[in-house]
């Protein structure tokens, strides 16, 4: 299975103005590659949640997207500060986002849950004070 890097973007902390640009570019790219719209929809929702997570919760990071004949893989890696309690963070409705974030319509505590729901496979590497790396896969 040969995979190819099709998108690589740096995501800045707190950059709400550009929030979603990377996922939007991904959606357009996958459309051009002829990926079925239901798969495109699932992977771009996952990418958007990951992108907003980096903007809201991290010190900054990057998103890379790989494609092979069998799957699309999004890798979101940041430089910290890590998820304090992953078990809690995975519970629907749990969020550490502040009021400013909630006023923008985020911080509903559905992000990681959404990522799991729309992906066929998710791997989360994190810990207090550690960088976080989330790998999400949608099978083709």
């Amino acid at each position: 299975m040969q995979e190819k890097l099709i998108l690589e973007n740096k995501i800045e902390r707190g950059d709400f103005a550009r929030g979603g640009e990377t996922s939007s570019n991904l959606k357009e790219l996958l459309r051009k590659l002829g990926i079925p719209s239901d798969k495109n929809r699932r992977i771009t929702i996952v990418a958007y949640e990951l992108e907003m997570n980096i903007i809201i919760h991290s010190y900054g990071g990057e998103i890379k997207v790989y494609i092979s004949s069998e799957q699309i893989k999004v890798v979101a890696a940041d430089s910290g500060p890590g998820i304090e309690d992953l078990e809690k963070a995975l519970q629907p409705g749990f969020s550490t986002a502040d009021d400013e974030i909630r006023d923008m319509g985020f911080g509903a505590g559905m992000g990681l849950n959404n990522i799991q729901h729309y992906s066929d496979d998710v791997e989360i590497e994190t810990g207090p004070g550690q960088p976080t790396k989330i790998t999400a896969i949608v099978n083709l």
Binding site: F16, A17, E49, M52, G105, F106, A108, G109, M110
Partner: peptide
């Protein structure tokens, strides 16, 4: 008004009513 809920539950062909007005 919760965009994560829209991302969680919405389907195509849905009309979204919201009080939020930001680009997100």
């Amino acid at each position: 008004d919760l965009m994560s809920d829209v991302l969680a539950f919405s389907q195509e062909k849905t009309l979204l009513l919201t009080g939020l007005t930001n680009p997100q």
